[in-house]
Amino acid sequence: MNEDAVSDSGWFRGVDPGDGSSARHAIEHGSAESPAAWPDHAVESGFVDNRSQYYEVLHDVTTAVARTQVREREGTDVQRIIHCVRAMDDVERVANELAERVSAWAGASFDDPGTGIEYAREIADETAADSEDRRGALDARLSSLAAQVRALDDEGQALRDTIERVTPEVAPNVSMLAGPVLAARLIALAGGLETLAKKPSGTVQLLGAEDALFAHLSGRASSPKHGIIYVHEYVSGTAPEHRGTAARALAGKLTIAARIDHYSGDRRPELQAELDERIARIRERGD
């Protein structure tokens, strides 16, 4: 065979047909400069008996490799989302603290100081526009500080936009039910999509309420009814006496959604319909 030199670099070279893991390794990490008539080479070298058997083996191996790679790659995407949501919280917290400082400081310089990030943005914008009026080194520092608040606020918004775009790709069903930001928070609290998928619904219901739960377990408090999922309109917007039930229903659907997202990945719009209907029934109940 005059093509022996090329066939040396086929993925099946040195692979035992019965050894799935070495075959997968060869597909994933192997390389060759040029293609060659691999099916023929595989038959000639005795790797398989005929071409149709070659394609059968190739189908199984490529599918198994791609499936593993997808899972691993999405695992790293989830880690990035977790960093992103934690960074967003850090940025918002710092922005709020600095905005308070700006507001307190402005109270000493101006007559009618406002509050919050909006006011800090005003100071930053205004001072940039007519800096002639704001003489004095101290006022310049104040406006610079306000500009930092504005920058942090912009960064927080950018982080939020990213979370809203990326989370539905990784966890489509949880994002559909909870909204992308709450979905990202749940994933972060659980430590990953896989760990979220493996948690029982009662744990998902209380994610973020660990302090309250342990206070309860040591006999110092009543049992918490919800954790971070409180921010969902279906919990916070339900009458207090039915909130526990609503939280349990929501957590149940979120747990199913997380399992579908992790193990299969298809979109199940019917989950949303089921949840909507369940919440509507809970809210209809009299007390």
């Binding site: 400069e33 490529t62 599918t63």
Partner: peptide, 17 residues
């Protein structure tokens, strides 16, 4: 199915005929 970068054919020339 090959989860590969189409800009780097060396990474799949050992599989594709």
């Amino acid at each position: 199915v090959l989860l590969k970068d189409a800009r780097k054919p060396e990474a799949y020339a050992h599989v594709v005929e």
